[in-house]
Design a protein around this nucleic acid. Sequence first.
DNA 1: CTTTGCAAG
DNA 2: CTTGTAAAG
Lengths: 311, 311
Amino acid sequence: SELLKTEEIISSPSQSEPWTVLAHKKPQKDWKAYNPKTMRPPPLPEGTKCVKVMTWNVNGLRGLLKFESFSALQLAQRENFDILCLQETKLQVKDVEEIKKTLIDGYDHSFWSCSVSKLGYSGTAIISRIKPLSVRYGTGLSGHDTEGRIVTAEFDSFYLINTYVPNSGDGLKRLSYRIEEWDRTLSNHIKELEKSKPVVLTGDLNCAHEEIDIFNPAGNKRSAGFTIEERQSFGANLLDKGFVDTFRKQHPGVVGYTYWGYRHGGRKTNKGWRLDYFLVSQSIAANVHDSYILPDINGSDHCPIGLILKL
Amino acid sequence: SELLKTEEIISSPSQSEPWTVLAHKKPQKDWKAYNPKTMRPPPLPEGTKCVKVMTWNVNGLRGLLKFESFSALQLAQRENFDILCLQETKLQVKDVEEIKKTLIDGYDHSFWSCSVSKLGYSGTAIISRIKPLSVRYGTGLSGHDTEGRIVTAEFDSFYLINTYVPNSGDGLKRLSYRIEEWDRTLSNHIKELEKSKPVVLTGDLNCAHEEIDIFNPAGNKRSAGFTIEERQSFGANLLDKGFVDTFRKQHPGVVGYTYWGYRHGGRKTNKGWRLDYFLVSQSIAANVHDSYILPDINGSDHCPIGLILKL
DNA sequence: CTTTGCAAG
DNA sequence: CTTGTAAAG
């Protein structure tokens, strides 16, 4: 296998570095607040084969890189991921070569999908130090491939699907498209791939699945990302098809947000949502060593999340 | 008269404060470089009645105020002007009340003209501690009053016209409008006012009149602001009608730019243009005590200029 | 190169 | 509130 040995991967400083704990001020009902310092398992024993995947909606990659304080470079040095999945790169096709030059050595395989219908909109990427067996852009299943929302990479023992699910928009004007066309297409794509290998689905799924996944469930029943339609579609098209929400499995009853809107200073007051996920095929759910959130990493309205998968 | 006494006006720190001298690196032919430290006359004797007017194309007033380093407030404290004329405020009508609140005490009379055809475009204002006898927006002469390009204030002994002349645009696509419609309309407006009182015309006239007024005359013969059409129109519609270019009269053979394009780092290399003027009726040309440039004031692609007029 | 408004989230 | 566009200078 091309996957790296444990000692190379698990040298991540993320459990020794001083991640500041996000104060989850108002855990609701009897929910606990996720604490990345205390709620992560001990490192795997040396020699265990595994892969470390990270996912981050960067809300404009060029904006993020200007910041410098959290380039992919520094994230790599801290987290030492094997594969990084990005959403909302907002790159145009013409920007990609320039951006590739900023990648650090070792991450030699990167695959960029850009919107060709709206410039500077949406966009996804997979950046990897492992060379995939194959890569596919979009689903090929219908005409929904113009917004750069899906990249799929095939590895030895699994498919990795990185996606940025369409936002239902102000006034929910894109809700029916989202549910009836997009979610269904994605679900079919996954099922198709799963016929040959287990699937890891990650990205900004633009849905807070349960009440625990949003700071104010009552007030957001008609907000894009928490409508009953989106939540049911998430259940029916993903979970009911045998996909496991790895964070929720590992941390039932724990509040762990991955998104805080800029509009109401949400990050300071922890008015967050869990919109970013790792879902995995049931057949590999037991291989998940850790599914975690890094809420203290700034530079976007979303924070990165990670998955350590034993192979 | 409502105009202030000399001791109140000429307490300006501008001749004692350390204005850094702009290095005019390549004076052309036998032109001298304007030096605001050395080329200004001594203060007027105490008790002389005068008015101090400043003009500044601010290239977006809200952007400038964010800066804070050169708000109108600080400019007022350093220059102690009586009247400030702004161009390219880029304000909308709805922004004006908000902006008025930022004015410092004493400047209680302000008159704002905003573009109503293109939002956030153009826009002029007169801010004064002297209450004008009357104020007029636009010329009233034709249909050229939708872009907020002219404010005229009447004082005891003169009219003050503040204008932002339309740029002829990339590809000179607005050149014929500029010459045939706009310059002519402005000229008629001035002549009309001059029938009753002398006129002070100031603002961004968007024309470098002579070769001395631009860093690279040869290379800009078809650039907006230095076409022969604009230069001749400037001569025919303004100077030939009896208006005196006060800076040029005071400093013949002196290079004094007021604008440096952002596009080619023009301010560092002093690739500038003189686009901002005080023109006065011949009948009061001898009353001009000082017509000067403040090239070291940043915050815009134009710098402010000043006029001290004896009354 | 920078400001502005606009769409989008 | 912030990221992208585009128009304008």
